[in-house]
Every structure is written in C-alpha cells, then in structure tokens.
Nucleic acid binder design. Structure first.
Lengths: 217, 217
DNA sequence: GGGTGGCTACCGATCGTTCGGTTGGAAAAG
DNA sequence: CTTTTCCAACCGAACGATCGGTAGCCACCC
C-alpha cells in the first residue's frame, strides 16, 4: 500500500466483480470483493489484510472472523474463477453440436466472455496462482489442464477431419488460449467494445487461425 | 522467501536472463540478474531485498552500495526490457521493406523472439509495472504506446491497400500483441519448440488472423 | 442471555533502509 | 622496496514501520 492510484494499472473498474450466486452474503461477501479488487490491482503480496479491511470498512482483526487466513482468501477467489471458467466451457461445449468449427467457436466465445464479465477474477486466477502453496494450487491446475485438454481435443478432431488446417495443434491451442486470456488485461468500460463484439471478433480470429474455411469474406 | 519451489510457477529456468552488453559488470550485474529471477518468480512485493541479496551471496546492506532502492532495481529491469523490445521492433520494421504483410511478419517475429530470448525480463516488464510509481513507469508506457502505434500503422496500411482483411484494426492489433506477449509465460527449455519454430508458427497465425492471402495452403 | 460480529491491543517476524565499521588491494609517498 | 593512504566493497547490527495473525472484551440482537 502507500500507493497512489494511477491510470495504467492492471485493471479498470468493472461492474460485476464476482459471478452471480457465488458471492457470500453480508460482510463475508464484501471482504471477498475487496480482496479481489486489491489482489488484482496490487497483487497478493502487494495488498495487506489491513488494506482489505480498510476497503471493507472493518478492522483487520474482524477479517479473521470470516476467513481463516489471507491465503484462504486468495484460494477462494482462484477457486471461484476457475470454477466459473470450467462451468462455462463445459456448457458451451455441450451445446455446440458435433462440428469442430462450431465447437471451437463456442469454446473461444465462452472463454472471452468469462474474461470480459469477470476480468478482475480472471486476472487474479491467472497471475496470482504462484502465491498459493502447491496443494492449494493443485485444484486450479487440474481445472486448467482440463480446459486445455478440451481445446486440444477439439483442435485435434477438426484437424483430423480436415476442417482445420493446423500444422501444430499444441501451438494453435496455446495461441488461441493466449488470445482469450489477455482479454482480462485490457477489457473495461474505458474502451468502445461490447462483450459480444469482442467475443464475435475473437471467434473469427480463432477460426482464421486454424484455417477454418467457413466464416470469412 | 519461506516459499518452497513448486512446478507450475510463472517461469522456467532459462539460459540468458538479460540482453547482451547491458548487464553491468561484477556485483551490480549479479544483483540485477538475481532481482530479475526473483521478481519474475514471486513478483515485486513477493521478493524481499534479503532474498535478492541471499541469491547473490552478499549482505542486504551491500545491495544499497549498488542500487539506491528496491524500486530502482525494478525500474532498471523494466527499462531494459522495454528498450530491448523497442530496438528489436524498430530494426525489424526498418529491414522489412514496403509490403505490409512482410512488415507484419517482421514485427510479430521480432516480438516473439524477444519473449523467447528473455522471458523473465518480459514477464517482469509486463506484469510488475504496477509496482512502479507513475513517473517512473511513464517511460515504459511511452515505449509501449510506440510499439502499439507501429503495429497499428502497419495493419492500417495493409487494410487500406487491400492486403489485409480486417474489420477492426484495433482489435486485430490487440489480438496479435496478445499472441506474442504470452509467449514469455510458457516458453522454456521444458517444451519441444525452438525459438525459430515458435516465431515462424506465430507469424503464420498473425498473417492468417488478418486474412492475408499469401502464405498458407 | 447466549452468541454473533465487531473492536482495541498486542504478538513475533519481517519489511526496506541506514549506520558505523572492517576489510583488501591499488595508488601515492617515503 | 616499503610504507602509508585511500577507496570501494562489504558486513553486522539496528532503525521504525508494517506484516499476518491472536486474545480478550464489548455491544447488540434474537
């Protein structure tokens, strides 16, 4: 702390910080929201529990009546972020049908929308995982591996079926993942795009990237 | 500190940590290298100056005989990272000729290679800028804006000339930038690709992304 | 009137940084 | 050639501040 806020920080203010329904009621929820904002802005080690408590408007000791430790707070946020991504990817994939191009489009769209809807959560989940002890980070890593596997299987199937033209499936998966992941770093109310515009555009980028002949002019 | 090293951290060990010729001689240089490694692994606030001093093999007080403060250390690393990127982008652009596709290819190639050659430096320059005071961060932000402007001008010219098929030049620039930027997060000796393979592949991705008809099958 | 949610006060540890002093080897003086 | 001077590098110890976390008490509300 002792930080003066200045513009080009990691984030821009955003309306909904946490997914619907998962925010705990009352003070617990406000603590989680404040921790999310401060972790996203200053990093786990850069934000103290006193900073978080001050943002909530309570004493730092009171924080421990709701969460057992600072690390638990981070672990909970990271868990929420990964759960939300997993759920959205699964649903998108399940509703996409059999066409690899449609499946890829659904996955990219879902990933982009998670990052536009909860950029702070995505930022923390992506960048602050290193502050967690190995056993506490393991679940997030599993979810991450699952998401990557889903993407790779779609790419693989599309390539085998001739729908995609990719020389290296793994690199294509990394590239497409990179596209969506960094959305959290720049998307915000200070730029002119809607979440749907970004999603549509990036789906188009991903399809072009894999050489899908379908949707371009 | 008090951290047990575990695998999926931000980085993997890498041979050359700092660009040639810019590493100060003697202890100054070793301090800079250690700070780079620790800042990349634990973040600016997650690495103490005692950690850095211990990694160098000197007392923490000795560190202040070489650098006036911890923040100066970070500022120097970020400056070096941005300078290296600027220099490489400029040179790539200068040698690329007049064809927009060749210019884009050169820029992407240069950006990817910076991130494969100095992933730690890129990581710190990209992710730890928020720990710098505004006036100390300003030069890096200027360099960043210059790089983005270079990319946008190439895309704009290509789109106008009909070489590219992009509906939104700004989003395409962001997407291409995202591709290269995240290379620093996964490239390392534990994966099978060479720097040239990654660069070539990602150049191909970028050209496909802008709908450049030239180089694909 | 029991219990929940908040507080003040404090713990030992660690933070970034400073201070005074000790080296060891090169330069200057004899 | 020896001795003295000097300077940069380095260290142990300590500074005040802040860190994450704990103990115990108070005030309110069912």
């Amino acid at each position: 702390m002792t930080h003066i806020a200045w513009e080009p920080r990691r984030l821009t203010a955003v309306a909904a910080d946490l997914p619907e329904g998962v925010t705990p009621p009352g003070t617990r929820g406000r603590i989680l929201q404040a921790a999310l904002k401060l972790f996203a802005e200053y990093g786990f080690f850069g934000a103290s529990i006193r900073d978080i408590a001050r943002a909530v408007g309570i004493n730092s000791a009171t924080l421990y009546a709701h969460y057992p430790s600072k690390e638990h707070l981070l672990a909970e946020l990271i868990r929420l972020g990964h759960e939300e991504l997993r759920q959205r990817l699964r649903q998108a994939y399940a509703e996409a049908g059999d066409d690899p191009a449609a499946q890829l489009a659904a996955l990219v769209r879902a990933q982009v929308l998670v990052h536009t809807d909860y950029p702070l959560l995505a930022l923390v989940a992506n960048n602050e995982l290193h502050a967690l002890s190995p056993d506490r980070a393991a679940p997030a890593l599993e979810l991450r591996a699952e998401a990557r596997q889903l993407m790779l299987s779609v790419l693989d199937r599309g390539a085998t079926a001739g729908a995609f033209d990719v020389a290296d499936v793994a690199l294509a998966g990394i590239a497409i993942g990179s596209l969506g992941m960094r959305v959290a770093n720049w998307f915000g109310p200070d730029q002119p795009y809607t979440r749907e515009q970004v999603a549509d555009t990036f789906v188009g980028f991903a399809l072009r990237l894999v050489g899908s002949p379908l949707p371009h002019g």
